[in-house]
């Protein structure tokens, strides 16, 4: 290989890597983040977007370059080079994707772990677990039953969610509030126990980057910690019938004070939020 083309290849590779990293880090395709696990998700997204951009642009570049460079010119006859394979090269392009996949897998496991193992917070956290648990962001999904507790360093706010064709109903056991709109205070771990009355629905808030199916006959759980005040859509993401597209609600993330006002106004019991 001539020296000049080697330099060109190295230059192009660096440009591809740098371009991919720039695009991955600077082009935002996601909505605003409104829960504690969302920034962690966005980190994962940036890494995947960066790797994906590099691979995609690299492969497309190779295909387009080959088509132009090795196209059959008028008057040319005969065949191309009779290369049947190249074992070292094939081992290379087995190993490199394997390493990339391994890296992505380990990295996404780390993200998974930081989101609380994608497990919802559902039982009391004992003191000896605190060192571990306080660093975790409680954002996760799962199934099973939830026991609300008060003896814990992190006490989740429990909300019962009932899904039906074509609405979500939110019941706050403390205060016995029934609402069609979800109100949650910032900085508070929320654990929702969800069950469907008829068909499968799914609870999705894009700004929380979380989704969990709501299933008849099998309770599921979703935990999150809202961070950014605002009104965000709650969307049903599982085909549930003719009005599936219209099955939407709103989650209102508000400061603890505003939440307390809302709670007092709607509470049937004369209890305080704390």
């Amino acid at each position: 290989m001539p020296k000049s083309s080697a330099i060109l290849i190295i230059f192009l590779s660096i440009a591809l890597l740098a371009g991919g990293v720039w695009i991955g880090q600077n082009i935002n395709l996601l909505p605003v983040d409104a829960s504690a696990n969302a920034p962690v998700y966005d980190e994962l997204f940036k890494v995947l977007f960066t790797i994906g951009t590099i691979l995609f642009v690299g492969m497309v570049g190779l295909v387009v370059y080959s088509l132009i460079k090795f196209r059959k010119r008028p008057g040319q006859t005969g065949d191309g080079l009779p290369i049947e394979g190249n074992l070292p090269l094939e081992i290379l392009w087995t190993a490199v994707p394997a390493i990339v996949i391994l890296f992505v897998g380990i990295y996404s496991y780390d993200i998974y772990d930081r989101m609380g193992g994608m497990q919802p917070l559902q039982h009391e956290m004992h003191d000896h677990e605190n060192a571990l648990t306080t660093q975790r962001i409680w954002g996760g999904i799962g199934s099973g039953t939830v026991e609300a507790t008060t003896v814990s360093s992190i006490t989740p706010l429990m909300i019962d969610v009932t899904a039906m064709q074509f609405a979500f109903l939110f019941h706050y056991p403390k205060g016995d509030i029934l609402s069609g709109e979800l109100h949650v205070p910032t900085g508070q771990v929320i654990t929702m126990k969800m069950e469907s009355k008829d068909v499968i629905h799914a609870f999705w808030v894009p700004e929380f980057r979380l989704k969990q199916d709501v299933i008849p006959g099998q309770p599921t759980i979703l935990s999150f910690t809202p961070t950014r005040p605002g009104r965000y859509p709650i969307i049903c993401a599982e085909l549930c019938g003719p009005y599936h597209g219209g099955m939407r609600s709103t989650v209102v993330v508000e400061s603890p004070e505003e939440y307390e006002d809302w709670f007092r106004k709607n509470s049937k019991d004369a209890v305080s939020v704390t």
Partner: peptide
């Protein structure tokens, strides 16, 4: 490959 990652998938699934 991105969709295979659980944390990524729970946002964009369906």
């Amino acid at each position: 490959v991105a969709l295979a990652q659980v944390p990524f998938d729970v946002h964009v699934h369906d």
